[in-house]
Design a protein around this nucleic acid. Structure first.
Lengths: 356, 356
DNA sequence: TCGATTTTTGTAATCGATTACATCTTGTGA
DNA sequence: TCACAAGATGTAATCGATTACAAAAATCGA
């Protein structure tokens, strides 16, 4: 009848268990956290009391006393992008194993949301931070780092002392993309970027430019479209592309979603992929297997990235090793599929070839 | 030089601030949490001390004392499915506003991972639970509910007292899907299910069956394929489909990813969609806009679902209202796109029509 | 100005565990 | 059997805030 009946719970404290077992709370605590320190007989006695009472330690009290929250903050720019979801899986696998929990910080591509998570970190709700974002958290980063909390940056090389970077070979991949396109005979290149200013973007574009130079081309042979890592960025790029007279034939998109958006849009205008335009993506998300044609792309070892990042963070949390020692750069793999092919020069006249 | 130099942080406690401001800790606490209770002059004095010292309250200590963790556990079956990512966005928007954090529980489609999150809940690390999973957490659910923690179930109607359900009109949608296909002239139907045993699946299949019966068909006109809510389930279904002599022409997939996998696979065998087979999905994920042809599907109000679920959970946490009063069923919208069309009877001979 | 009332501030208990240190047991060898 | 070491257990301090209650200060009316 009481309005609160369904929430009535009698909380069992360690003292209750101690009384039940006829020992002190210290002993109960030891049984639970360091069983070797107590005699077998008392151990059994206590465990029986624990079982009978259904005691579960209050983790908040444990956290206060041990100064370990056993939580890690993961800041991601956007959850609906499978890239982050996939990395998160790796992180989760690794952290769960060590008993750590994940508090999720979803920026939803809006930087101003960052502040909230900085507070969260600064109020010591977490033992460490995993930064999956390409943005440099400005004031935030500084205060987070000053707080002494271990931070690991992924998906973005942050060149600050005390922050190890777990990234992929963005630059190398972008360069390789251009090489690959050039080898297929392409002479004019398009680049669909991520949001300008994000570090991940800087690296990839630098690599792209290196590739252009290495293959003997100039800035005149390059077009660049910009936008966040979402489908619609590819669509906008495609619309700009469609307006052009002298269109590029080799496109590198800094993310799969953009690549897919681009392809969808140009095909709607009866432009053939790869016969009329070749497209390479970046990420290797599962969707890219299910597009038509299937997307040529660089596969990032996303799950591994997550595991490694989490592992490094745990090392930092536990051993206080020098963060500088832990930067890692994982390789990516070019998946040659159906959206890339040799240039068909107009005079060759529809001597079609399917993808390489 | 010290090995730990980079982690050296002097923690500022409330007592430090009190000393600095020349007041008691009680006053500092009041200034921060209930400013009306102190005189303006002391308020300013304390705030100045807070500012100067850079004090940030230790949230763990606050949690212990107030018995509020300000965290919510969100259990999702799989993060890489954008359906959950999208719901999570809604949840995040709502919870962040109220100062709550999200601890993520990713089952990764493996039920045994559930145990870990049950523990997490039972050790009072969270104030409430949002269940995005279609599974009934067996022993888990019971102990979670017995713990007195508020629980809200989404994506799955759990018919237990004390657990409000925030779901969509699964059953109605599935029925409508069959009606729609029947109206297009389809006579034989395929159903690509989710994992058997999940409640969400039960509802959708029930609706599907209702539709079959309502349209005057029997079990002989129905084929059912089964698997988790992933792309490859659609692929397997397609492979079974391809083996059949008398193939269904109207397919309803209980999730978009399966639908997409199915379409991709059958098109590889030169089966045309929708001319040879019509497909309706369920979810309305963004990717369904970018397939070829674009997927006809039911759009779930995912973001709203997340907001509503979080809102109900907060109400439960704060007011201890009767959970039973809060079950909600949101409508879904049929998006008629390109993967469905009228049946082309063989004798009509390629009188093609594009999608309805 | 004084006492009563209201407002503001301080003292100390409390949340529920862990753990340093003290004390009590047990075991061992002479 | 006794002295001593090693091992097991207990006592009480501690983590860092909040808050009930007590005490002090401010306000007010006569």
């Amino acid at each position: 009848m009481s309005r609160k009946r369904w929430r009535a719970v009698k909380e069992i404290r360690i003292a209750d268990v101690a009384r039940l077992a006829g020992v002190s709370t210290a002993t109960v605590s030891r049984v639970l956290s360091d069983p070797d320190k107590v005699r077998q007989k008392t151990h059994d006695l206590v465990m029986e009391a624990v079982r009978r009472s259904g005691y579960i330690p209050n983790s908040t009290a444990q956290k206060l006393r041990t100064r370990r929250t056993m939580n890690v903050l993961v800041i991601a720019p956007r959850l609906t992008n499978p890239v982050f979801a996939e990395i998160l899986r790796g992180v989760d696998d690794e952290l769960t194993q060590s008993g750590y929990g994940i508090i999720i910080g979803n920026l939803d591509n809006r930087r101003e949301r960052e502040a909230r998570y900085v507070d969260l970190a600064l109020s010591r709700q977490v033992d460490g931070i995993l930064l999956l974002t390409g943005y440099i958290p400005e004031n935030g980063a500084r205060s987070m780092r000053d707080s002494g909390l271990p931070i690991v940056a992924m998906c973005a090389a942050i060149h600050e002392d005390g922050i190890p970077n777990i990234v992929v070979q963005d630059r190398e991949a972008a360069r390789q993309a251009v090489e690959y396109l050039a080898r297929l005979g392409h002479r004019k290149f398009g680049y669909i970027s991520g949001t300008l200013g994000s570090i991940i973007e800087v690296e990839r574009f630098a690599g792209f430019q290196e590739g252009i130079a290495a293959a003997g081309f100039s800035q005149d042979d390059v077009v660049r479209w910009e936008g966040p890592f979402v489908f619609s960025t590819g669509v906008s790029a495609a619309e700009a592309f469609l307006q052009m007279k002298d269109r590029p034939t080799g496109i590198f998109a800094a993310c799969d979603e953009s690549a897919i958006g681009f392809i969808k849009r140009v095909r709607a205008e009866r432009i053939r992929v790869p016969q009329d335009v070749s497209v390479i993506g970046f990420d290797g998300i599962e969707y890219a297997d299910y597009t038509e044609p299937t997307l040529t792309t660089f596969r990032q070892p996303l799950h591994e990235l997550g595991c490694v990042g989490a592992d490094v963070l745990l090392k930092l949390i536990h051993n206080a090793m020098k963060p500088e020692d832990w930067s890692i750069r994982l390789p990516v793999t070019l998946l040659e599929r159906e959206t890339t092919g040799p240039v068909l020069h107009k005079d060759y006249k529809s001597l079609r070839r399917s993808a390489v």
